[in-house]
Write a protein that binds this DNA or RNA. Sequence first.
RNA 1: GGGCGAUUAGCUCAGAUGGCUAGAGCGUCUGUUUUACACACAGAAGGUCGCAGGUUCGAGUCCUGCAUCGCCCACCA
Length: 951
Amino acid sequence: MSDTTPEGKRDETGEGAMPKTYDPSSVEERLYKQWEDGGYFKPSDGDREPFVIIMPPPNLTGELHLGHALMDTVEDILVRWHRMRGHPTLWLPGIDHAAIAVHVLMERGLAKEGLTRQEIGREAFLERTWDFVNKSRARIFDQHKRLGASADWSRETFTMDPGPARAVRAAFYDFYQRGLIYRGERMINWCPRCQTALSDLEVDHQEEQGFLWHVRYPIINDAGEPTGDYITIATTRPETIVADTAIAVHPEDERYRAFIGRKARLPIIGRELIIVGDEAIEREFGTGALKVTPGHDPVDFEIGQRHGLPIVNALNLDGTMNHEAGPYAGMDRFVCRDAIVRDLDEQGFLVKTEPYAHSVGHCDRCDAIVEPMISEQWFVAVNKEFAPGRSLAGEALKVVNDGLIEFVPERFTKTYTNWMENLRDWCISRQLWWGHRIPVWYCDACNATIVPPPDIEEPATCESCGGAELRQDDDTLDTWFSSGLWPVSTLGWPDDTDELRRFYPTTVMETGYEIIFFWVARMIMMCLAAMDGRRDTLEERIPFRYVYLHGMVRDEHGAKMSKTKGNVVDPLELVEKYGTDALRFSLITGGGTGQDQRLWEDKVEAGRNFANKLWNAGRFVISQLPEGETHVPPSADMRTSWAVEDRWILSRLSRVTAEVEQLTRDFQLNEAARRIYDFLWGEYCDWYVEMAKVRLRQEQGTGSKEQGPSPLPVLVHVLETGLRLLHPYMPYVTEELWQRLRPFAAEPPSEMLIVAPYPKADPALEDADAEIQVEGLIDLIRQIRDIRSVHKIPAGEWIPSVKYTAITSEVMSATLPDFDRRNGLVLTALRESAAIVRQLARVQAVEQGGHLGEGIKAHLQRDQRGRVRFVAAGLDVLLVLPSSQDASAERARLEKEIAETEGYVARLNGKLGNEQFRSRAPADVVASEEERLAAAQGRLDGLRRALGELA
RNA sequence: GGGCGAUUAGCUCAGAUGGCUAGAGCGUCUGUUUUACACACAGAAGGUCGCAGGUUCGAGUCCUGCAUCGCCCACCA
């Protein structure tokens, strides 16, 4: 039958024989197409609250990596869950133009051809870039699809598309009108390699081994002549000496107090420097005296502002020294550094050189060392009050502090608020070509700055003088300016579209914690401002309700995956080898929310094994279903006709369903997935299916159903429900199996599983008694199997008999009525389901016996068979072995059990003997401890008796 | 200099609001072609939950301190 299907043979129709092993490659592409063609990825109509995720736009530069795979998995789980719960669900995908990243990439490409962007010019550069963009775009989406992402591809958006571009102009215009965007000369970070300004965030501080050079500056008198005194400063950047305009000391520093107000002469350059007192100086650091370079250091700039110091810029934009550097003009900054140190030394100004580790700013993209410089750039005024008590950062802080936006995991809230509280103005102009051109024109005739409203893509004449000679600002905007508008721009803002009204605010922003500042914070600031005046309350203006942050996927050794290290794992390779479901499952169960995880092939194998386990469970169930017979899901009013194991598995199903619901609501997806896994594998497959086989065998053997109700309806129902529970996590194998089960359903709820209703717990099916009963059966079976193992009874050999009787617990039954009730339940189960114990433990006869007390010794004298007495499920049990037992092995087994149980009993006695515990712990905790003690005590008595009889 | 995270079985990790004898996967050991699955089944071994205090009837879980590793932020030149 099914086994004959050759492996690897494609089963295009999805019908027919099921291969023995689940083959993802024969399923995934076909099902994805069915889902997409069926329109299931588009939001459904209806009045229910929509669930919306805007996909973080991956940038164009790279292939999809495991971080994206994790992102897709988390988002797809949330999306599929809400979709199945009947919410109109929108997952809106997009791509980011990644201005500086792509720019650097393109420049590297040019460099390989021996070209620079300046040589080919702006137009040709942009043409090449668009070519590249159009090629990667399609590939990236294809990769998402391979991961099963059920996003609405018909809405795919690119940050450079006309819509988002218009949103960028609109936001720029709006912010400019409100004074939230301004142009000014400020200290910025300059990358000499990229030749652009950078925001503070794009500077990567790295600890480096450098030197602290101590340099003495001669003090001069009013006539400009050396007094013979010196003041010694310490610096890590001696090349900036040429731009010094002052020396600063702490105003209360006894060593230097007398120098304040006097002058010094700059070595080599000869400039006169004033000595100022400023509180910013750390007396303990270096010499306690600071050379002040307002043109090339942010702190010095501020000192300069306070004391009205002149600013000297000594650097060209490419990192070479300019004319201010005198003899060093034209040198590269680091060549200059060496030259100056040498000259200072030769001229006797260098006092000391000490090794010194300090952090140096590098360009995030190209790793060149960044220079602080004064430059005219565009900024977003994050702290400016545009209305009384309101600023961009202030409102962005408020919505989080007030709980309108929640971070998952919660600890990131603090990361966010700390940052937001110390925010400085955001430099948004970049001297790059690839990106949104700054929508500002200048009229050279009258010096006007023109910022046209968004619908004017290019103003024709000057607003103030009417001149037609307008020149657009050469610069482009920081990528994150357009990304910051993403939640509104993808929905049609600045127009008040139906989409915006329906889907804004979005529900969840799911992304990596490494871009909280870059992106999440900017979205919150910008979207709040963008929606200002269009929505009344902050609650309606926030871009999203929840920020869910996933961790980083690292390699086997915990190292960050990177191309240079060569340890990058391609998710698509894993998909090919193990299947999408396997990868998704291992990613989602791989770690806690927001926690980094390690991933390697062994882990994905575990996911693959689970998919295959389900496949085979499905294969078995389907093989048992008579052709053409359909089933109605069991409901609680039918319960009297079910076997105990049916009641048990349905009860467990309901409880697990409830747990999964709660865990998913709390974004504990890893736990939810684990719970489903444990249920389906550990309870359904390992026990229920095996128990059901017993009745199926009887049915098939006798051709009748006299042995009780058929397990088929429950067998099918629990599997079908389990598939629905698991579908968000492992969409393909569940859909495939569900399709194969669908013909057997009397009333299938939908065409495809992707839109079938997500299971709901049914408390009416929960059955504590059945759980006690089946747990008892399982305990008994397990112990018999253990004994088989200890006594080396081959798995295939039948054990002659097992007899059991209730432990008559003198004390316990008097004090704990529940003890007897539980035993009664187990006895009933054993009577009704003796066949299960017979089959699963391989025992020929399972019977209740009243007189186990006659002891083992008597038996031993009568025949050669071994006998083992033990306690299981609260019962006294006597097992007759096929041959004489190994007494020492049995003694060892019993002694170990006894020791364990004694320890447990002692602990419980200690607890229950404590008056404090009895009086302070909740009554139900005390009661359950008492019950445990009763059970353990009974067990201990039985074990001791068994050991005694063995002697 | 601040802030955060991690520390649980040989390895990788779960254990939300304190309460079963702390779990899983992989690995190890012993068995098994028991007719869904060897990508499997049955059984077993393996943990003073980083250390020291504290709160509590009760702590892997909460508090304080410490140690080790990692990350983020920061204008001590």
